[in-house]
Design a binder for these strands. Structure first.
Length: 286
DNA sequence: ATTCAGGTGCGAG
DNA sequence: CTCGCACCTGAA
């Protein structure tokens, strides 16, 4: 099958039908993946991976380890894309969108990393978020045996100095991040246990955190806590919904979110991802 | 040099 | 509650 000559030891993961690695990793939900040619490099939990897509499969160039590859699969494609895209395609607008966006999976990311990263996302661009996250990992992340660095623990960030955080270009978000890290480090917030709460309860808990508003809370629910019905409304999604579904009528984010949840239910998060990706590319993001 | 992109928090009404 | 504004920094 494979036309690539690869060492026999390189694990080859069969992707779900239609899965698109590049679209998935570049869709603004994760901030640590970089591409060099056709090779994606990124850190998941405490393992650095190097991946290439190959004819319906993902070749794991690094590490050469079947157990790690299995963990990667749980991160990359937690959902049945065929089923989801089939259902969303019954929406005429999404049917027009999907040819340009299909194959995007919503990742299952670490809750703490997701929360911390998306606090940085407020009033910020994807490019700059990546820059800040890279800086945080370089400065505060533990060096991993095989190379790369882990995302910083709450303890490390709680102990960070304002000066050190400023080096990571966090701007006014630095105190939010540190306050957040302290809540977790002190045990006032159990990030992992958030995942066990129902959607609405987890959301209410997130909204009490510093630097977490409705949009960031919905991103954490969707990308870190597995709540696929969450519908984060950023400027792109807002534009897309207003223009494509409401004839350009200005709407409040909350109104959009409630409408989306009623319309798409547990698939709202995926609907958002496709609308976001399409709008962003049409809107001139390289 | 100037302008722009981006959610949240806060005070005022 | 809703509104209007300040906030920080890389890129154009």
């Amino acid at each position: 099958m494979s036309t690539l000559a690869a060492p026999r030891s390189v694990p080859r993961l069969t992707a779900p039908r239609g899965f698109d690695l590049r679209r998935t990793l570049d869709s603004g939900q994760a901030f640590r993946w970089t591409w060099e040619g056709g090779v994606a490099t990124g850190v998941v939990e405490r393992t650095r991976f190097r991946l290439v897509e190959d004819d319906g499969a993902v070749m794991v160039l690094e590490p050469p380890d079947a157990a790690a590859a299995a963990r990667l699969a749980a991160y990359l494609w937690p959902d049945d894309l065929q089923l989801i895209e089939g259902a969303l395609g019954r929406d005429p607008e999404l049917a027009r969108t999907l040819p340009h966006t299909r194959g995007i999976a919503i990742l299952r990311q670490d809750p703490w990393e997701t929360l911390a990263s998306f606090v940085l996302s407020s009033f910020n661009t994807v490019k700059k978020i990546r820059l800040s996250v890279r800086g945080l990992c370089a400065r505060y992340g533990e060096a991993l045996p095989v190379g790369g660095r882990a995302f910083p623990t709450p303890e490390r960030l709680a102990a960070a100095t304002p000066r050190g955080l400023a080096r990571c270009s966090l701007g006014y978000r630095a105190p939010y991040l540190r306050a957040l890290a302290r809540e977790v480090a002190d045990g006032r917030l159990e990030v992992r246990s958030l995942g066990a709460l129902p959607h609405d309860e987890a959301r209410a808990r997130l909204l009490r955190l510093p630097g977490v508003g409705e949009k960031v809370a919905d991103c954490v629910l969707l990308f870190g806590l597995g709540h696929r019905g969450a519908f984060p409304v950023d400027v792109w999604v807002r534009r897309a919904v207003e223009r494509r579904y409401f004839g350009g009528r200005p709407m409040r984010p909350r109104e959009i979110r409630e409408w989306a949840r009623a319309r798409w239910g547990d698939l709202a998060g995926y609907a958002q991802q496709h609308l976001f990706e399409y709008e962003r590319r049409a809107g001139g993001i390289a």
